[in-house]
Each structure stands twice: as C-alpha cells, then as structure tokens.
Nucleic acid binder design. Structure first.
Length: 481
RNA sequence: GGCCCCAUCGUCUAACGGUUAGGACACCACCCUUUCAAGGUGGCGAUACGGGUUCGAAUCCCGUUGGGGUCACCA
C-alpha cells in the first residue's frame, strides 16, 4: 500500500434494525484502522428514499456507542470530508455522473421501470443465462440522447461496461478474481429520482473521504468489477479490496433479522455484554495466534492479521455466545463491575431495582454470578430474595413434606446462631446433623425449600447469610418450623 | 441457468508438505458436593469425493459433488 495511513469505513443503510452484520463489519474495519494507526469512518447510505427509515440511522449509531466502537468520523462527528450522510451529497454524485456521461464512460437510458420489468420477464421465460439490462439505449447517439433529455424525457445514467476482455479484482483474502467483461452489466449509476445508486455513491464518497481499504461482506465481490470501472472512468486510484466471509445463521443461510435471527438490540435486551458480543464476533472468521478465545478489542488490534482470516462462512451460535458472556461475568469482569452491569440492565429493561438495599442487592448478585449466563437471567433466578411471596415448586414441596418434623428443631438450631455468617451457619447445620445422626442431605433440603421455594439455589450457608437471620427464621416458622 | 466465492468434528476454529489432525461450545460420564451452577478429569466426534504432483498431502493442481452469493432505477 501507499504511505498514507489506512482509512476504513462502514456504510450501513438505515432501513431497519441495527444488524449484527453491521457490527461485524464495524469491528473488523475499526480494528484494522486502529492497528494501522489510521481512521475508521461511518457513512450512512440513505440514497434509497423508498426504504429509508428515519429512526434507523440513530439506532445504528447508538449501537456503535453501546459496543464501544468509536468512529473517527460519522454523522455525529462531522469533519471537512463530510457530510457523512450520503443523501446530503447527492449533488456531488450527480456531478460525477455527468462527468462520466461527458467522457463517454456512461450513457443515458430512457427505459421505464415497467419496460425493464417486462423485458426481464421475457428473458426469464426464454431461460436466458444472463438477465441484466439488454443495453437497448447504449446504441443511442449522443445527439439523440441530448435531444430526448432536453425534451424532458426521464432517464437514468448507466455505466458503459466493456463488452469484451477481462477485469481482474485483486482481493486481499482471495487473490486475483477474474471476471469476463461480457458478464458485466451496464449498471445504473444515477437513478431517475436524481439519487445515485450504491455503486456510484460509494465509489465517489470513498474516494473523496480518502478510504484506502474497502472491507465489506463477500456479497459485494461480484460487483467489484463495476466499482473498478467507475473508479477508472473517474481517473481515480482503486482502494485495496477485502471481502470478508459470511456470517450465517443455523440453516447455513445468510444471517438476517428477517429470518428471525437476533439483532444487536435483541442481544442487548437479552443481557449480553457488548464486550462479549464483540469478542464472539471476533472469533467468527478470525482467530488469535495463540488460540485464546477470550480476548478484548485491544487484544484484537494488537494481534490482527488478514492472514488469520478463514474464508468459509461462520454459523452464528447463540449458545456459545451465551457461554462466552457467562465467562465474562465470571472471569473477565470483577464482581463489583457485574453488580453495576446488572443494576444498569435492570433499570433499562427490568422493572427497576428490586430493592433499595444496595448492600443486599450486591450480595445477591455476587451469589448469582457463577449461575448467570446473561444479565437477563438474573431476575428470573432471584425472586425469593425480594419477596416472601414466592412460589414453592414441586421438588421443594416434597422436601418440606418429607422433613416436616425436623423443621422446628432446625429453626431452633439456627436461631441459636449468634454470629450470622456463612461459616457459623454451616457449623450449626453440621452440628445439628451430627447431634441427630442425620446426613447433611437430610437436614439441608428442607431448609432450602423453606427459604427459597426451589431446590435450585446457591450454597445454603451463603444463601442464609445473605437472606439474613430475620428473614430465614420467619420463613422457617412459616413453613412449619 | 451464466458468472463468482467457499469446503477440517453438529457448531466456532488450529494446522501455513512430515502432528496419534489440536483446542473451544454443545452432548455424555465421572470427580467435587447440601441442591443448582461454577470448576476439574475423561469420552463421543472431522479433513466431502475422485484423480494427480511429491519420498510424504487436510495443506499444492485438476475434476466432481455440495453450500453460498450475484445477475434491482436496494444497499
């Protein structure tokens, strides 16, 4: 590459939910730019006025904020190369379309959408192997074209692709990819509504914004020859092309919200940590040299290399994401940090904090950490900590029934514990068991059932300590103690 | 259908001509143990197929098969 610092970009289209694929591209683009000491920019591609969704742009930018990916330039961080919202640059794109028209690299086409649709259908019926534009208006003389345009006839501007020869795309990941020009289509550059298509707009903006590396999904590979041709027509240098492998969903198809795959917002709602999501995305198609699976974006910046990218598509596995998230909860974040995360999560998605007692809340979170996969798990696992009005499930009811006669004694034994700590409680429980020649497995279940209503709960001594003497004794009494 | 890309356990991946093909998730078993987890140990499980090249191929080449993408006045 040249001596200039790398500039990468993502160019999401504001049409709906913030996509996981966008987060994936943002990760690789920003990691590479940071590693190269370059810049990473976000340009919103909203030239399709039909699919435009006003709220979507903000949600995409919010997603990046949440993930902690900070663009060097974006619609929220404009600079002299902006604006970073493509529709605001339409005048610019029109100018370059005209330039292409003037130089003969492009031409006007007057076909109506209806005509095109009909001809395409006919081609399909004929089972033509090639279904692109039939190039009808390519034969128009310049005079004729000018005359019809001047007469007010509507038109699009199409690229005049070469009819023979080959175009070679040098992809960083795949080497030289050769396309026969005969396969190329005379793509629309400027639409009837005066807005550019992606092909024109992206190439113009990439060039004007100084983008050096176009890192995008593999679906763009086959239109890269078109992009090369546009760049050539404008006399501009081409960037380095890097087409990343697919993110797939379980059926082997492209990962997509439409198929029901979770969006980034869905993961956030689920209680997935941004760091864990990024980490997971980082191991889709790429791996750390030492095989480490738990790594941060900083680690990735340090170790990143295109040589370690695997080209087969990767199937997104939510189960593994959750495991990784649990790993973050247990091993990457400190207990205090987890307390803060749970708190933030509950105020955003839950019914708020279940208690005003900060110390009690923190103690409960600490108890639950090894049992949590997502922040969303917390509420459903901790009901009995916040209210005395909790359900008693079947197994717990059975444990209570089987040891009903033990309960009064047990309660008395616990009442005798002066120093209410897990150690003392444990000691008292053991003592009780020994004194009555009972196994621990006989004395603990009824206590657990009485104070939690479920057998699936943390270590009993710790559980009792956190619940507190008063609560525990009251619940035991209520259960028949 | 034409063109393009891709191909290691069910899934994510390691291997850059020489390994009993390694690790992780999931699953199963065992250990720890007061339940549930967490943690530990072990097990199951892959180079799609066929030809070459080579002393030697998961690795290089060709073909087949399979999967995906693309062929919009969407990106």
């Amino acid at each position: 590459m040249s001596d200039q610092a790398a500039v990468t970009r993502i160019a999401p289209s504001p049409t709906g939910d913030p996509h996981v694929g966008t987060a994936y591209q943002a990760l690789f683009n920003s990691v590479f730019a940071r590693q190269q000491g370059g810049r990473f920019i976000v340009r919103i591609e909203d030239t399709d006025r039909n699919r435009y969704n006003a709220a979507s742009e903000g949600r995409i930018l919010d997603m990046l904020d949440w993930l902690g990916i900070e663009p060097d330039a974006s619609p929220r961080r404009e600079d002299e190369r902006g604006p970073y919202t493509q529709s605001q640059r339409a005048e610019l794109h029109r100018g370059y379309a005209m330039q292409l028209l003037e130089s003969g690299a492009a031409y006007r086409a007057f076909d109506t959408p209806e005509e095109l649709e009909e001809r395409r259908r006919a081609a399909e019926e004929r089972k033509d192997s090639y279904l692109g534009y039939d190039r009808r208006d390519r034969a128009l003389t310049r005079e004729e074209s000018d005359r019809r345009a001047a007469a007010g006839e509507e038109f699009v501007i199409r690229l005049k692709a070469p009819l023979e020869g080959q175009t070679v795309v040098r992809d960083r990941l795949r080497g030289e990819v050769v396309f026969d020009n005969a396969q190329l289509d005379d793509k629309v550059l400027l639409k009837r509504d005066g807005f550019p298509t992606y092909h024109l707009a992206a190439m113009v903006d990439d060039h004007l914004m100084g983008v050096t590396h176009v890192i995008r999904a593999e679906e763009w590979l086959t239109s890269t020859p078109i992009h090369k041709l546009i760049l050539e027509g404008l006399g501009w240098q081409e960037p380095e092309w890097i087409h990343t492998p697919w993110l797939l969903s379980s059926g082997g198809k492209k990962y997509s919200k439409r198929r029901g795959d979770p969006s980034v917002e869905d993961f956030r709602r689920m209680g997935i940590l941004p760091g864990a999501l990024l980490n997971y995305l980082g191991m889709m198609g790429w791996s750390m040299p030492n095989g480490e699976e738990v790594f941060s974006v900083d680690d990735m910046v340090r170790e990143f290399s295109w040589d370690r990218v695997s080209l087969g598509g990767s199937t997104f596995d939510v189960t593994k994401l959750k495991w990784l998230n649990g790993k973050y909860l247990r091993e990457v974040l400190s207990a205090d940090e987890v307390v803060e995360r749970v708190k933030a999560y509950l105020s955003e998605f839950g019914a708020g904090l279940p208690t005003d007692d900060e110390a009690y809340f923190a103690a409960v979170v600490r108890l639950m950490i090894p049992r949590l996969e997502t922040l969303g798990d917390f509420s459903e696992m901790t009901g009995y900590f916040w209210t005395d009005d909790y359900a008693t499930d079947e197994k717990a009811a059975k444990a209570l029934a089987q040891a009903a006669d033990l309960l009064p004694d047990l309660r008395a034994a616990l009442e005798g514990v002066n120093d209410w700590t897990a150690d003392s409680i444990k000691h008292a429980l053991h003592e009780y068991a020994e004194a009555h020649e009972l196994k621990l497995g006989k004395v603990m279940p009824p206590v657990r059932a009485a104070v939690a209503g479920t057998m699936q709960s943390p270590d009993l001594a710790e559980l009792l300590e956190v619940l507190g003497r008063e609560r525990v004794l009251a619940r035991l009494a209520r259960a028949g103690g």
